[in-house]
Write a protein that binds this DNA or RNA. Structure first.
Length: 279
DNA sequence: CGTATCTCCTGCAAGC
DNA sequence: TGCTTGCAGGAGATAC
């Protein structure tokens, strides 16, 4: 389940192989991802000399392959998606839905068993694209200080009543915080996930912002250590190397106070927390 | 605009 | 052993 660190790790893995190359062929074996990939996209992207990739960016959990003159390929990894750099003779396996063949004889291969991901071709400006127009603040790698992020969270929360955990998972508020990091960050700050986001203090938001930055940065770093194998295998996700304090730890003893970790459901999503440490 | 609910999909684990 | 059932989850779409 890629969260922001996994998407960033993927971006870094792909960038050196993709930038400056042209898309010479696009093979789509499964068009029904999150959104149906329209017929004709292959031709649009490979027409003429082929779309030349000038940069590989990330916004929220979306990867952006930007073109020389116009156009961007937007890719979301969903829950189970991977995008790897492979040689063109690499055998196709189950769930390998898309191959982006490059002029250097490498392919960017998109695999996604659950098909929650997306592949979109757009000629719109990214920042005004419907997917990004209301996108929230980037917590890391965009130069936002913890103070800025904390103030942003505080300001956005004043007139809302959503539970704090649901609030920080809202990508229109802050990007990149998925279920795992949301649970872990709230535990680390001693904040109960069920309390209203509007009653969390400015001071608590500062601490939360610092924690989110710290956790994501650490996860990106550990993702980076697996980059050397990137062409052949998927790197172990950042959270794999991180000790999970509450996520998935139903009935386990809290590492701080030994109280049983509790599992509840919020917005169709599981939340784990320590009822003693998080008041 | 804010909020809650529904939805897509497959792999895996647990239970019978 | 093999079946059924439930759960996991990102985030847009939808209804109010």
């Amino acid at each position: 389940m890629p969260e922001l660190p996994e998407v960033e790790t993927t971006r870094r893995g792909i960038e050196p192989f993709a930038v400056g190359e042209r898309v010479v062929k696009l093979t789509i074996r499964q068009r029904q991802l999150r959104w149906l990939i329209p017929d004709g996209v292959e031709k649009e992207i490979t027409d003429g000399n082929g779309f030349m990739i000038t940069s590989v960016k990330r916004r929220a959990k979306y990867l952006l392959l930007e073109g020389e003159e116009y156009g961007t390929i937007i890719i979301h990894l969903g829950m189970t998606g991977t995008l790897r750099v492979l040689n063109i003779d690499e055998p196709v396996e189950k769930h390998d839905h898309i191959d982006i063949e490059l002029s250097n004889n490498k392919i960017l291969r998109y695999r996604d068993p659950r098909r929650f991901g997306a592949f979109i071709w757009t000629t719109e400006e990214i920042e005004s694209h419907p997917l990004f127009i209301k996108m929230g603040i980037e917590p890391v790698l965009y130069g936002h200080s913890a103070t800025e992020v904390g103030e942003h969270l505080y300001a956005k929360s004043r007139k809302r009543k959503t539970a704090i955990k649901v609030f920080i998972m809202n990508q229109h508020i802050i990007t990149g915080v998925g279920n795992i990091y949301a649970c872990e960050a709230l535990f680390s700050c001693g904040i109960n996930p069920t309390i209203g986001c509007n009653i969390v203090s400015a001071k608590s938001y500062q601490k939360l912002a610092e924690t989110i930055q710290k956790i994501l940065t650490k996860a990106i770093k550990s993702g980076g250590t697996t980059l050397q194998d990137f062409r052949n295998s998927d790197g172990k996700p950042g959270y794999f190397q991180q000790q999970l304090q509450v996520y998935g730890q139903t009935d386990a003893a809290c590492t701080i106070c030994s109280t049983s970790i509790k599992k509840i459901t919020q917005a169709q999503r599981s939340t784990w927390y320590c009822p003693q440490c998080q008041k």
